[in-house]
Nucleic acid binder design. Structure first.
Lengths: 136, 136
DNA sequence: TATAATCCTTGAGTATAGTCTAGAGTCAAG
DNA sequence: CTTGACTCTAGACTATACTCAAGGATTATA
């Protein structure tokens, strides 16, 4: 199986090389191994993981939360029920975020439909009126 | 119409008073006025705005992005078409976030359904396998 | 009318998430 | 076998988003 240097990994995910080292310090992305001279060695699954980290960050998750997500896995049957519980908690959190985004999107859609284009005269309004209901 | 001091505003939104002043410095939440002695005066709509800021932050938006959202409004008909365009751009961004969250949620749901509870023996797996497809 | 609570400003300190630099070692191509 | 690209560590620096402290003024309450 092929391996990667830190530079190749960073480049393939369009991430700063120091950021990869930083994630390692934070416990998110450990290299598979080190060469005799101390170079980090990664396997291709690190690309998947690194991309996951970036994607999750863009969704507003902190590195701490992402670390928790990545640690949700089972290595033995003993903690399977426990993993399931934590996964379900995460699902609820994510659903909550989606609901909030949906509310915000609806507010924006109402704002957009109030924009009739050039020539329309509207009283001052903003997303807030549409987000929270009655215009103030 | 009733007004609020900064302390009341902060408390009603469960936000640190210094955070409210910080948002003002960042141009997000300006007081309606100042008293003769320099105290900030807010009207009740500031509560709405401040809560919106916190909610948007929890969705991963930066203060800069939130500021842009709050500035999406029309005061004159002249820029109505322009506002509409920017609102529609924001809607697309939000939809993208929702789609990513949906993908993540589905990954977690598959992970949860692989957890049969105590007594199940599974090979090592994590959200990554479910998030990106084929288990590695 | 004390005195406690609240407000003001300025400026420093903290946490998170990087990003960059310096100085030195390692690896790959010509 | 050198030269350039790459890697290492340690530590300093940056941006964002707060949070706190100091020192002083103002306002509300017992």
């Amino acid at each position: 199986m092929s391996t990667l240097t830190i530079g190749k990994l960073a480049k393939s995910c369009d991430v700063n090389i120091d950021t990869v080292r930083y994630y390692e310090r934070m416990g998110l992305l450990m290299p598979l191994d080190r060469t005799a001279s101390g170079y980090r060695v990664y396997d291709p699954s690190s690309i998947k993981k690194l991309k996951f980290v970036r994607r999750a960050q863009s969704l507003g998750l902190t590195l701490e939360e992402i670390k928790e997500l990545l640690e949700l896995h089972h290595t033995q049957e003993a903690d399977c029920a426990d993993v399931k519980q934590r996964v379900q908690d995460k699902i609820l959190q994510i659903q909550q975020r989606m609901d909030d985004l949906q509310t915000m999107k609806r507010g924006l859609e109402k704002l957009a439909s109030a924009c009739k284009g050039k020539g329309t005269r509207l009283k001052e309004c903003s997303i807030l009126e549409y987000f929270y209901g009655e215009p103030s």
